[in-house]
Amino acid sequence: MQENTEREPESTPTEKNKPADAMAGKVKETYEWWNNLATINEEDPLWVGAAKIGVRLFGILILLALSPLILVGFLMAFIAAA
């Protein structure tokens, strides 16, 4: 009789975190894109600087609008996990 000596590789903790690492990488890329978009440079004309300030304010408003929804999501996650 032949025994199957090939075993499936055991999952290591780093393999389990791959989706989380991918998500963290995407979040980092998105933040850097947004930060570069809204950063005022010396060579920017006045109207571009004003537009970039508007972009920053718009981003802050979006985060403030989403924060209650995110908090409710975390609350529901903790209730579901308990």
Rank of each mutant, 00 (worst) to 15 (best):
residue 1 M to K: 02
residue 2 Q to K: 07
residue 3 E to I: 07
residue 3 E to K: 09
residue 3 E to P: 00
residue 4 N to A: 04
residue 4 N to R: 08
residue 5 T to L: 11
residue 5 T to W: 07
residue 6 E to T: 09
residue 6 E to A: 09
residue 8 E to R: 07
residue 8 E to L: 13
residue 8 E to W: 02
residue 10 E to D: 02
residue 10 E to C: 00
residue 10 E to R: 05
residue 12 T to I: 06
residue 12 T to D: 02
residue 14 T to F: 10
residue 15 E to V: 05
residue 16 K to W: 10
residue 17 N to L: 15
residue 17 N to C: 06
residue 17 N to S: 13
residue 17 N to Y: 08
residue 18 K to A: 09
residue 18 K to T: 11
residue 20 A to D: 08
residue 20 A to N: 11
residue 20 A to R: 13
residue 22 A to M: 12
residue 23 M to G: 01
residue 24 A to R: 13
residue 24 A to E: 11
residue 24 A to T: 06
residue 24 A to K: 12
residue 25 G to H: 05
residue 25 G to N: 14
residue 26 K to E: 14
residue 26 K to R: 12
residue 27 V to F: 09
residue 27 V to K: 06
residue 28 K to A: 14
residue 28 K to V: 06
residue 28 K to H: 10
residue 29 E to T: 11
residue 29 E to Q: 14
residue 30 T to L: 15
residue 30 T to P: 01
residue 31 Y to P: 00
residue 31 Y to W: 06
residue 31 Y to G: 00
residue 32 E to G: 00
residue 33 W to F: 09
residue 34 W to T: 04
residue 34 W to R: 09
residue 34 W to S: 06
residue 35 N to L: 10
residue 35 N to D: 12
residue 36 N to K: 15
residue 36 N to A: 15
residue 36 N to D: 15
residue 38 A to N: 06
residue 38 A to P: 01
residue 38 A to C: 13
residue 39 T to N: 11
residue 41 N to Q: 15
residue 41 N to V: 03
residue 43 E to F: 08
residue 43 E to N: 13
residue 44 D to R: 08
residue 44 D to K: 05
residue 45 P to W: 10
residue 45 P to F: 11
residue 46 L to D: 13
residue 46 L to E: 15
residue 46 L to N: 03
residue 46 L to A: 13
residue 48 V to T: 13
residue 48 V to P: 00
residue 50 A to I: 14
residue 50 A to H: 09
residue 52 K to N: 06
residue 53 I to D: 01
residue 57 L to E: 09
residue 57 L to G: 00
residue 58 F to A: 14
residue 58 F to R: 09
residue 58 F to L: 14
residue 58 F to V: 01
residue 59 G to P: 01
residue 60 I to A: 07
residue 60 I to E: 06
residue 61 L to P: 00
residue 61 L to Y: 05
residue 63 L to K: 08
residue 64 L to E: 02
residue 65 A to R: 03
residue 66 L to T: 02
residue 66 L to W: 01
residue 67 S to G: 04
residue 68 P to I: 02
residue 69 L to C: 02
residue 70 I to F: 03
residue 70 I to K: 00
residue 73 G to K: 07
residue 76 M to W: 05
residue 77 A to Y: 08
residue 77 A to L: 07
residue 77 A to V: 02
residue 77 A to H: 04
residue 78 F to T: 07
residue 79 I to G: 02
residue 79 I to D: 04
residue 79 I to L: 14
residue 79 I to A: 13
residue 80 A to T: 12
residue 81 A to W: 09
residue 81 A to H: 11
residue 82 A to K: 13
